[in-house]
Amino acid sequence: MAEPKLNTSTEHVPAGEHKAGFPPFDAHSFPSQLTWLVIAFVLLYVLMAKWALPQVGGIIESRQKRIDDDVAEAGKLKAQSDEAVATYEKALADARANAQAIANQTRDTQAAAAEARRKTLEDELNAKLAEAEKTIAATKQAAMSNVQGIAEDATRAIVERLIGVAPSDKAVADAVGGALKRS
C-alpha cells in the first residue's frame, strides 16, 4: 500500500522543488528535528506512563470492579431468593403431604369404624337368624310329633276298621315311625 504512494512522492521531488531543498531530505534540519523529537517523545512517554494512563486505567478498572461487585451482589440476592422459593416450596410440599396423611388416616378410621359397625350388625342379624331357625326347627319338630300322633291315631282306626282288632300302641308307633323315617 505504501509503494505506489512512494512513487508519486518521488516523482514530485524534481518537479516541485529546486535541487537543494526537498525539505524531508535536507540533512541540515535533522539534528534539530531529532533533538526535539526525543525530548517531546520522552516527555509524552513519561506523562502517559506516570500520569495519564494510570488515571484512565484506574477509572476503567474501578468501573469494572463496580460492575463486578454489582453482578456479584445481584447473584447473591438471586441465590437468597432462590433459597426462599425453595423453602416455600418445601413448606408447601410438607403441608400437602401432611394434609394427605390426615385425610388418609381419617378415611381409614372411618372405614374401620364402618366395618366394625357392619360386623356387629351382621353378627346381630346372624344371631337373630340362628334363633329364628331354631324356632322354626322347634316348631317343625312339634308339628312333626303332632303329625306322628295324628298318623298313629289314624293308623289305629284304619287297622281296627279293617281287621276289627285294635293293634297295640307300640306296633302302631313303630310302623308310623318307620314310615315317617322313610319318607
Binding site: F30, Q33, W36
Partner: peptide, 10 residues
Amino acid sequence: NAEIAFTNSA
C-alpha cells in the same frame, strides 16, 4: 557543525 534550533516541527 550541527545547529540545533527550535523549529515549526518542534
